[in-house]
Design a protein around this nucleic acid. Sequence first.
RNA 1: CGGGGUGUAGCGCAGCUCGGUAGCGUACUUGCAUGGGGUGCAAGGGGUCGCAGGUUCAAAUCCUGCCACUCCGACCA
Length: 492
Amino acid sequence: MSKKSLTKRSEDYSLWYNELVKKADLAENSDVRGCMIIKPHGFAIWEKMQRKLDDMFKETGHENAYFPIFIPKSYLSKEASHVEGFAKECAVVTHYRLKASEDGKSVVVDPEAKLEEELIVRPTSETIIWSSYRNWIQSYRDLPLLLNQWANVVRWEMRTRLFLRTAEFLWQEGHTAHATAEEAVAETEQMLDVYADFAENYLAIPVLKGVKTESERFAGALDTYCIEALMQDGKALQAGTSHFLGQNFAKAFDVKFADKDGKLEYVWGTSWGVSTRLMGALIMAHSDDSGLILPPRLAPKQVVIVPIYRSDEDLEKISARVEEIMQDLRKAGISVHYDKRDTQRPGFKFAEWEMKGVPLRLAIGMRDLENNQIEVARRDTFEKTSHSLDGLTEYVQAQLEAIHENIYQKALEFRKANTHYVDSYEEFKQILEKDGGFIYAHWDGTAETENAIKNETKATIRCIPLDNPQEEGTCIYSGKPSKQRVVFAKAY
RNA sequence: CGGGGUGUAGCGCAGCUCGGUAGCGUACUUGCAUGGGGUGCAAGGGGUCGCAGGUUCAAAUCCUGCCACUCCGACCA
């Protein structure tokens, strides 16, 4: 771990990922098993995601609220399939007090302080939110109810990995209530579109929009929609989900409204979320053997400026000019950082900012100052050019746009190159073995087949794409007739 | 819960077979030189060797028990 360079992706992809997360200063493991400490650089990226997503939620009419982290145990029993989905990974609070141990050297749980009703640390908030909705909704005039909350949740996972799967993670969960099924479905689809828009235009990751099969569906939903992204190792990552809950939670929590005719109806619900897992997607979609590559629109520092100098006088002259440059860049809305640490040499700084993924690096020394120019280096291509200090802001702006476009196109081309259409199980297994990727294949629609393929190959059906072309074919596994291809992949 | 592995400086590790002053790399501190791609040299600080017990003149090392972490399987965003 103390070595300077990363393990190469081609040597050990998952080791590369682990090292990158730590060396780029994004996060580290905590002393609590399965939980992570998100460090300032990592959290700054998450904050940028939050800010943008939050804007997008507000623009689509949602408001933020906050519900408690603790859920009465009895709430979880109310929606049967929901319970089954989460029961195995819930943390439970049983006591509310500690006391000093006999020898006075430690603290122990006070057996006197047992809770009458145990509390569940939320794995998701449907139950506690719907129990409030019952009180808030009486009439069609109260609908739609469009809420979102930013929160942490806990799912007691066996195998964890920084950002991709942690016992505690940060996310956003939207919970909406509607008068009609059509409206709820429209909401579910709308939020999926918001996620896809965000993924492509901010994360610079192309995503597949689709619907989950019954066995991959959220416990308690009638339909689960998702966006699926392809990582550089050929594995799929679910980057966001949106659920049409039907009237399941309304019935479980008795949430009814009077329609215009005064008739009592159960309301229709949705829920949707993205989590810190997006950080994992961001890392695995773009980064290289030199470290992180951040999409410019989410980079906390879009530009870093490194001075090249020998004497203090040189540094002063350079710094004076850099201050002007920074003012111009900031006026244009570009976030810029001047790295004038005297304790590190330029080469060290270059490598460090590359590891951290800063999209553009400007280097300026006395020679540049004399020639009224600056060196501009792109993180995505390592391309270096000298540019005049005149018109620099426009150039930087254009370069940031170009980086976004370039990494998006690269990811898109990678996905194209790793998307296969297969018609036989043999070919299916071969491709999975060799390069992975998305595999479009015919499926007979049964859970048995889906399961058998999963057990034999570890590949799952990632989704049935929206607007999927209908075509006659035969299931690659059972040979039974099929009307459409579905997308298989190994997944995170 | 089943099978393997590891606990020694902030991090990564050696030392244990064969008991005898606790070491290496890196990071850290100081100084000098260096400064357009991870700088060099020199000096310095830092350790309940996972915990408890036992054997012994003497335990990181041998014995017993416990704990923690980790990897691989079953479950999952």
